[in-house]
Computed example of a mutant assay.
Amino acid sequence: MARGDQIYVMREFMGLPGLYEHHGIDCGDGTVIHYRKTEVARISRTSMAEFAMGQPVYVKRYTTSYLPDVVIQRAESRIGESAYNLTTNNCEHFTTWCKTGVNESAQLRNFGLDAVRISLPGTDKLINEAIDNSSPAKSMELYHQALDNIASAESTLRPQYQHAQKEENTWHRVALAALKQGREELARAALHRKVQWKKTAADYKSQLDYLETLKAQLKRDSLPLRQTISSS
């Protein structure tokens, strides 16, 4: 472990050991900045012992990331924050943002629990209930709830898509500058980051396109209902 590392320990949940990872940023002086769970979850600087709670500490490795001083500065800039959210702003979202600038949680994604995957199954259920409901007014209410879900998912995804595009362009410029300076190794690393961000942007774009398709289908399917309600 070293200053600026993203570290994690395995924590228990409901008495089951090793169920999830709790992440923090190693400050290199025996302290860790992390989302400390008390009455209110808050980003705090605590001792390594309090962070680890007797468990082994692991390091999350990256091919490229911010320099340690920058990582620490980013972590310190958010000390005192109490905006914890399991699906959009948990301890891993925070530390990954400190290391790479990306607000994401790999373990949530691996569990199929990222914000968009949570919202869309609920939307599908609302649509099915709207179709099956015999009351036009109730069906319209359910359709509007589904549209609200889609709008919420879009508001989450669009800034991430724009950020990914911006990072792709930034790393492209870094690669060109490195090549001009004859720094081939740095150029390769920058191009690797560019490709990663390009793939991330493409994934976000694919999800946004799906949401647009779903929204258009929803509006089209609800047209007969709107006509029935307006004529009654």
Rank of each mutant, 00 (worst) to 15 (best):
M1F: 05
M1Y: 06
G4A: 05
Q6T: 10
I7S: 08
V9P: 09
V9F: 09
G15Q: 06
L16S: 13
L19A: 06
L19V: 12
E21I: 00
E21C: 01
H22R: 00
H23W: 08
I25V: 08
D26F: 06
D26L: 04
G28R: 04
V32E: 04
H34G: 00
V40H: 09
A41V: 12
R42A: 02
T46S: 11
A49D: 12
A52R: 10
G54M: 07
P56E: 05
Y58E: 13
Y62G: 01
Y62A: 00
T63S: 13
T64N: 15
S65Y: 13
Y66S: 06
L67S: 15
D69Y: 01
V71Q: 15
V71L: 10
Q73L: 00
Q73E: 14
E76T: 05
S77C: 09
I79K: 08
A83I: 09
T87C: 01
T87K: 13
N90S: 05
N90F: 05
E92Q: 11
E92G: 08
H93Y: 14
F94D: 12
T95I: 08
E104H: 07
L108T: 04
R109C: 02
V116Y: 01
V116D: 03
I118H: 08
D124G: 08
A130C: 06
D132V: 05
S135M: 07
K138L: 13
E141L: 14
E141W: 13
L142E: 04
H144L: 10
L147K: 07
N149L: 02
A153T: 01
S155N: 01
R158K: 11
H163Q: 12
Q165M: 15
T170A: 14
T170W: 11
W171H: 15
H172V: 00
R173K: 15
V174Y: 13
A175F: 06
Q181D: 15
Q181R: 11
G182A: 03
E184A: 12
E185V: 05
A190F: 06
K194V: 02
V195M: 15
Q196L: 11
Q196M: 10
K198R: 10
T200P: 00
A201Q: 04
A202M: 04
A202P: 08
D203V: 06
K205N: 10
S206E: 15
L208M: 02
Y210A: 04
Y210V: 00
Y210C: 03
T213F: 05
L218N: 02
R220A: 11
D221C: 02
P224F: 05
L225Y: 15
T228E: 14
S230L: 12
